[in-house]
């Protein structure tokens, strides 16, 4: 879902760049207060994994392929603000190193593929976790549902950006983008759930949202 240049107007790109820059700045300030020594290599390896996994396009129906985004996975593993940093590094590298996605559209790409999943997707995830029974299966089910939604929301944001830019009307962009990404989101949900269940099996203490979910058992929904 990397937006090339020439598709989204400069004002939309400027707005999404400002939002991405602002959130990443906030994430850095917060990380300065909270980041532990152990988390630095975890941020690195999460970014590396997401970069590698994003290269693996899988075919879906109708001569189209899709690829993993990973923003919700990063948010569950590292917390939403750290996830924004990781996604900005990954998408920035794809743009500057590999010419993937337009460089003027970098802000829009970080916003759609990073921030939307890491913040809105994570909020949805926490909402689902809060209402489901507190166990491993429900935790994974919530991650599957929220990661599917994160992809669909990201594609909807892309459709809105195209429409606001005057490229095509929303009634054309929204159904087309959301329709195909509803399928791609299934792949996202499978990969997110598979990776999370692996990490939960070997090192549950490294899944940031997992102790928070477990804490909620005793402390009510605001854990």
């Amino acid at each position: 879902m990397h937006i090339p240049d020439g598709l989204v107007s400069n004002s939309v790109n400027a707005a999404t760049f400002a939002a991405s820059f602002g959130v990443c700045g906030l994430a850095l300030l917060r990380a300065k207060k909270t980041l532990g020594e152990k988390e630095a290599p975890l941020l690195g390896v999460t970014a590396a994994f997401i970069f590698a996994a994003q290269m693996l396009n899988f075919p879906i129906a109708g001569g189209t392929s899709g690829h993993f985004l990973g923003s919700l996975l990063a948010a569950i593993l590292l917390g939403p603000l750290n996830a924004c940093l990781v996604m900005a590094v990954v998408i920035g590298m794809q743009c500057v190193g590999f010419g993937d996605g337009g460089w003027l559209a970098l802000g829009s790409n970080i916003f759609n593929m990073g921030l939307v999943g890491a913040i809105a997707g994570y909020a949805i995830f926490r909402g689902i976790v809060a209402v489901l029974p507190k166990n491993r299966g429900c935790f994974l089910a919530a991650s599957a549902l929220a990661s599917w939604l994160a992809v669909v929301l990201a594609s909807a944001c892309c459709a809105v950006e195209l429409a606001v830019s005057g490229t095509l009307p929303l009634r054309v962009t929204l159904p087309a983008m959301v329709g195909v990404h509803a399928l791609i989101g299934v792949g996202e949900a499978i990969i997110t759930t598979a990776v999370l269940s692996t990490v939960l099996a070997v090192r549950p203490d490294l899944v940031c949202a997992w102790p928070a979910a477990a804490r909620m058992e005793g402390a009510g929904a605001n854990g």
Binding site: M1, H2, I3, P4, D5, G6, L7, M55, L56, N57, F58, P59, G62, G63, T64, S65, G66, H67, G102, S155, C158, T167, L168, V172, T173, A176, M177, V180, H181, I184
Partner: peptide, 19 residues
């Protein structure tokens, strides 16, 4: 990995958008 266009690229192709 699949060489097919991804969701957005396919949409760009279908709508014949200039990028």
């Amino acid at each position: 990995a699949s060489q097919l266009p991804d969701g957005l690229d396919k949409f760009i192709e279908e709508q014949k958008l200039q990028v």
